[in-house]
C-alpha cells in the first residue's frame, strides 16, 4: 500500500458518513479535542496571565518563573496523565489537569516577556506623567505587550491540541480514541484519518492565532515598523544614567 493511497483512505475514512454519528463519532471526538484544548488553555490562563503580568510589571520573581516553567516543561505529558489518572480516576479530569500543566509555561512566558519587551523609557515616561501602576499596566504595558501574550496562548493551544490525543489513555475520549482503535484493529485508514484530523486541527488553530497575534500589534507600532525599523531595533532597553527603576 503506497503512502498516497493510505492518505486517500484516511480521507475517505473521515468522510464516511457512518463515522460521524453519535457520541463516538468524528464530530464529537473533534469537539472533545477542542474542549480539552480551550478548557485547559482557559484554566491555565487564569493562573498564568495574572502571574506573568505581575512578573513582567514588577520585574520580580522572574528567575523563579523561568526555572518553574523549565521544570514543568520537562515533565513527560503521558507520565503526568497516567499519574493523574491513577490519582483522581479515569475520565476527562485527569487529562484536563495534565493539559493545564502543559499550557501554563508558554502562557506565563508570553505574559511576562510581552511586558518585558516594552521600551523601558516609554513606561518611565508614562509613570512620570502621573499614571498609577495599574494605569501603566493597563494603558501602556498590556496594549504594547498583548501580541506577545497572544503568542504565548498560541503556543499553549498548539501544544495542548496535539497532546490531547493522549486523553484516551485515561479513557478521556478525543481523537486519540480513533488512533488507539486503528492501531489495535490494524485499521490503517482509521489511523491515518485520525492523524490527518489532529494535524488539520493544529494547522487551523495555528492560522487563526497567527492572525490574531498580528491583529493585536497596535496600529502605531505596526505603522512604525515599516518606516522606522532601524532606529527601533537599535533602541536600548534601558538608558544609561536614567534611574528608571525608581519612582514606583
Amino acid at each position: 500500500m503506497t503512502g498516497v493511497n493510505l492518505f486517500l483512505q484516511g480521507i475517505m475514512w473521515i468522510f464516511d458518513p457512518t463515522h460521524s454519528d453519535g457520541s463516538g463519532g468524528i464530530p464529537s471526538r473533534i469537539g472533545e479535542q477542542l474542549a480539552y484544548t480551550f478548557g485547559a488553555v482557559a484554566i491555565a490562563s487564569l493562573v498564568a496571565i495574572p502571574l506573568g503580568l505581575w512578573i513582567g510589571h514588577t520585574g520580580r520573581g522572574r528567575d523563579i518563573a523561568v526555572s518553574l516553567s523549565g521544570g514543568l516543561r520537562a515533565l513527560p505529558s503521558l507520565g503526568l496523565l497516567i499519574i493523574f489518572a491513577l490519582g483522581i480516576g479515569i475520565g476527562f479530569k485527569a487529562p484536563l489537569v495534565s493539559f493545564v500543566i502543559l499550557a501554563i509555561p508558554p502562557i506565563l512566558a508570553g505574559a511576562y516577556s510581552g511586558l518585558e519587551a516594552v521600551d523601558r523609557r516609554t513606561i518611565d515616561a508614562a509613570r512620570a506623567q502621573g499614571m498609577t501602576e495599574w494605569q501603566v499596566l493597563t494603558k501602556v504595558e498590556l496594549p504594547l505587550g498583548f501580541s506577545l501574550l497572544v503568542g504565548g496562548i498560541r503556543s499553549g493551544v498548539l501544544q495542548v491540541v496535539a497532546t490531547a490525543t493522549l486523553a484516551y489513555f485515561a479513557s478521556g475520549g478525543a481523537l486519540g480514541v480513533f488512533i488507539n482503535e486503528g492501531l489495535k484493529t490494524r485499521n490503517y485508514a482509521e489511523l491515518m484519518g485520525a492523524s490527518i484530523l489532529v494535524t488539520a486541527l493544529a494547522l487551523i488553530l495555528e492560522g487563526i492565532f497567527a492572525l490574531l497575534q498580528r491583529l493585536f500589534v497596535p496600529r502605531g507600532v505596526a505603522a512604525g515598523r515599516i518606516k522606522d525599523v532601524r532606529s527601533r531595533s537599535t533602541r536600548p532597553r534601558t538608558t544609561v544614567g536614567s534611574p528608571i527603576h525608581e519612582g514606583k
Partner: peptide
C-alpha cells in the same frame, strides 16, 4: 506622588510618547 506628577510637566530627551496612541 501620582498627584504631584500630574501637576508637573515632564519632557524627556526621547519624547517618551506612547507609540500606540495618536
Amino acid at each position: 506622588p501620582v498627584k504631584l506628577r500630574r501637576s508637573i510637566g515632564y519632557v524627556m530627551q526621547n519624547s517618551g510618547l506612547l507609540p500606540h496612541r495618536k
